[in-house]
Design a protein around this nucleic acid. Structure first.
Lengths: 344, 344
DNA sequence: CTGAAAGCGCTTACAG
DNA sequence: CTGAAAGCGCTTACAG
């Protein structure tokens, strides 16, 4: 494939006996252009015969559209946690992009990298729009780009910024998990957050926990609330504190599977059993959740759906079709397995 | 960011009082071009003042290079298995690409998609080169592209094709795992493959198992060999067959963690304990391996390193610097945890 | 229903 | 040490 001797639209035009305009019109399926079926046929055949692939590099410059969207993937302190979502999210994005004829660029931003590393993707016209996963609330570049009308969709939420976003309904998900515990008869239910409450998702999951208790007429007891910090060890430490309380909880809602696994370890180390002594429900449904013993009852996050929705929304914005909904919240599903002692 | 009113190199040139040529030369850091420090400075300042980002779309057309590499990700029957490697591999690729100033395109190929879906990436000049993960031996397009000299690197191996590739040394990895079992005193060691033996990695891992036995002067007993098929259930079924044998094995080498988890379940269902009754070692070290009970002793696959190496190799090929090594095999590391009963 | 021509915003020999 | 000009391969008004 030496450069310079690939067939061009000129070659196709000559072989078909038409102009390059016509070749472009036919190959791009431009509507409202009354080209005879016969001419169209000739062009298509010529292109096939020459094994012609339009040079996207030229197409992009001429058309002003790159037909590419980028996933900007922030690798913050929560990176190990978030990696579990990457395959689903990315493939959801890629599938939707492909469905609409677009391509996807993957751009991780390392923690030590200047925060505006992704700006080049927008301003240098690498992509027609960006999906940002793990947005930071103090990111001025983001606000700036949005203010200029550059197409942006967040995976996650940035309250108040007004940027279109796609996320899971964390409140309802947590609510469902805790309701499950309540329905099993538990009254002293502890919770461990998945991360510091400055993370929107953490605060929302905690809110779902509160709402469930409130709806059941139960008091909110600060002593039953502990903070996790993404990893297993933080879940273990938090559970140890919870177990040290005079009145031991009979159930736990861990706001992530990872934190739940740490809690499970602490419970085991205390000589207690799950679900016998303590029932455990969690959130995320990462791949490991069904493998561990006991298999976790957890709130499933539709990662592929998140990716698909984000890409679809972004593509609508790029096409300037006002989307019906710019703040999308996807539903979760409680997956009942063994850790709460309920039959699936 | 309405199109059409972004600053161009023309604007920068005017502000700096030089020609567009000079702007291009400075901004691209072209070597051997004796531009005065003062002129260079003026250009840089003008660019900064205008917040100038070169339009890559134009740059690509003019220069003939896209500075983009693509990861083609085959989603075959082994998709659930391989998804565990995606985050590490992709981020390894992205990090290396960024280190060398390139971008990465992610392109999954669905099982029902025409096999040549990725050819467009090459011929349409979306990317300067491709990394293919999960190559198929009957893929003529691949051979054709390679024959034409288009830059290609495989993640995995395609014996005989002569295409540059990056993979883990499956034979040595398996050898290390089985040697570990032998060192623990086991003599009747069964194995379950991770997939049908038509998959190169499966055959190689089995070969490592054989070599270890041979080196220890032990016979190769077909009856101790069972086939897995990517998923947990296949591991469970294989282990059930193995357990039904008159002389029960005292140890198992499962050629993937997923298959090992199924085997663990079968062992538990048979009322046996790990590692007490049967020691289990496996391969991959997926995220779940350390969470399950007992935590798996397994062969770690350096996914990030695979990605980085693949990208680095591809970039060398694109730059036409003959790489030292075109068939790269990365070393694995045996991670000793609990499932073999040895102290870490 | 189709074509001639300008233009997209860069890079790159070439000349001086 | 720097500039004028051609060219990369398409798309897209515009004209007929």
């Amino acid at each position: 494939m030496a450069r310079g001797r690939n067939p061009t639209s000129h070659d196709v035009a000559r072989l078909a006996g038409v102009s390059r305009t016509t070749v472009s019109l036919v190959l791009n399926n431009v509507p409202d252009t009354h080209i005879t079926a016969e001419t169209r046929q000739r062009v298509l055949e010529a292109a096939r015969e020459l094994n012609y692939y339009p040079d996207v590099t030229a197409r992009r410059l001429a058309s002003g559209r790159t037909h590419t969207i980028a996933l900007v993937w922030h690798r913050g302190p929560d990176r190990a946690y978030r990696d579990a979502f990457l395959p689903g999210l990315l493939q959801g994005i890629a599938s939707a992009a492909r469905h609409y004829g677009d391509h996807v660029l993957f751009r991780p931003i390392e923690p030590d990298e200047p925060d505006d590393g992704y700006v080049e993707l927008a301003r240098g016209r690498h992509a027609d729009g960006l999906i940002l996963s793990g947005p930071r609330s103090d990111d001025d570049h983001l606000l700036q780009l949005h203010a200029e009308g550059y197409p942006l969709v967040l995976h996650g939420q940035l309250p108040g910024a007004g940027i279109p976003s796609v996320d899971v309904d964390n409140v309802r998900g947590a609510l469902a998990a805790v309701e499950h515990l309540l329905a099993l008869g538990h009254r002293r239910i502890a919770t461990i957050s998945n991360a510091p409450l400055a993370y929107t998702a953490s605060a929302q999951r905690l809110q779902g926990y509160r709402q469930a208790l409130q709806a059941a007429g139960l008091p909110y007891d600060e002593g039953l609330v502990a903070l996790g910090n993404f990893d297993e060890e933080s879940g273990r430490a938090a559970m140890q504190r919870l177990l040290a309380r005079p009145e031991r909880p009979t159930a736990l809602f861990a706001a992530s599977d990872t934190v739940a696994m740490g809690a499970l370890r602490a419970i085991r180390e205390a000589g207690l059993r799950v679900p016998g002594d303590i029932a455990v429900a969690s959130f995320d449904d990462i791949a490991a959740a069904r493998f561990i013993t006991p298999a976790l009852t957890t709130v499933h996050v539709p990662t592929f759906g998140l990716g698909w929705s984000a890409a679809e929304l972004l593509l609508q914005i790029i096409a300037q079709e006002a989307p019906a909904q710019t703040q999308v919240l996807l539903d979760t599903e409680l997956i009942v397995r063994e850790s709460c002692g309920a039959a699936p």
